[in-house]
Design a protein around this nucleic acid. Structure first.
Lengths: 152, 152
DNA sequence: GCGAAAGCGTGCCTCGCGCACGCTAATCTG
DNA sequence: CAGATTAGCGTGCGCGAGGCACGCTTTCGC
């Protein structure tokens, strides 16, 4: 293994993290999508899009938040019409959270904006490089040091 | 340009972001380095390592925090002996923040742990892939959609 | 020189978060 | 089948972090 590759990637990842968590970026990606969508509520929206209809507790486990925090954020999204609650038909205690059509469209629009932005930047790259990067990044995330099940 | 590359990278980046901001990861990387180093104070420590000795206002601009927030976090780090304040010899109003030897060692130790973790994961990769990934990731961060000066 | 501006630290207010509580419903047990 | 335990939900409450405004000192422009 080449010494220094880990250092280089660590430094670059740090830079990426700093850049991508900028408030300005989030504001651009969600501009015009309503007051309710911000850095706090979007993870709930996005997580729910990923998991599909589920309980607040499950969603909290998925995105690493306390159950009550999810409830409060979901309140805001529900009020904005992006999310709705339905009693779980299989369990009368449980309440299922699910996106409304407007909520799904919000998530789609945001992801579309991000993808377009990435695609624009990559248009200057040789196509082979873009494909390689996509493939290697995917592998890094799936199997790499941040994978769900630590390999060691 | 291949359609879908932007989508794929966007999704993978989202996954990476979720994984890498997990509290558990940060706890592992800073374990045993003292109570004062946490998710709040580390950006100050790390930012100061990058910029070198500078004022609280400058550091705030660098890492995207309010001046007063930097001051408060710096207080904790100073109390732990990781950072010290010196009056700016060139400007009697200003106070320069700088890492102590212990502070620099803390940053080094953390980065070393992250680099080692990455290197371990990459040891299973063909060396050419690892080098390609490092290079492409660097280019993506430097010139990509999150670069400092937007290209469009 | 003198007013405007910059830099710093601190008091106050606001807001988000997690814990604890009370409630309802499902599940377990004898 | 009835009582007890557990799981799920929403909400009141205390705590901690962040931003604004203020007062102070020093520097800069005219």
């Amino acid at each position: 293994m080449t010494n220094g590759t880990g250092d280089e990637i660590a430094e670059t990842l740090g830079l990426l993290l700093r850049r991508s968590t900028r408030e300005q970026l989030h504001a651009q990606l969600t501009e015009g999508l309503g007051e309710a969508v911000d850095q706090l509520t979007y993870p709930v929206l996005s997580g729910l899009a990923r998991t599909g209809s589920c309980s607040a507790a499950d969603l909290g486990r998925e995105i690493g938040l306390d159950r009550t925090t999810v409830t409060r954020r979901a309140d805001r999204l529900q009020q904005a019409g992006l999310l709705h609650r339905t009693p779980d038909p299989a369990d009368a205690r449980a309440t299922l959270l699910a996106l409304t059509a407007a909520g799904e469209e919000t998530v789609r629009a945001t992801r579309r904006r991000l993808a377009a932005r990435i695609e624009t930047s990559l248009s200057a790259w040789p196509e082979a490089d873009a494909r390689d990067f996509s493939r290697l990044l995917r592998r890094f995330v799936e199997e790499g040091p941040f994978a769900d099940a630590p390999s060691h």
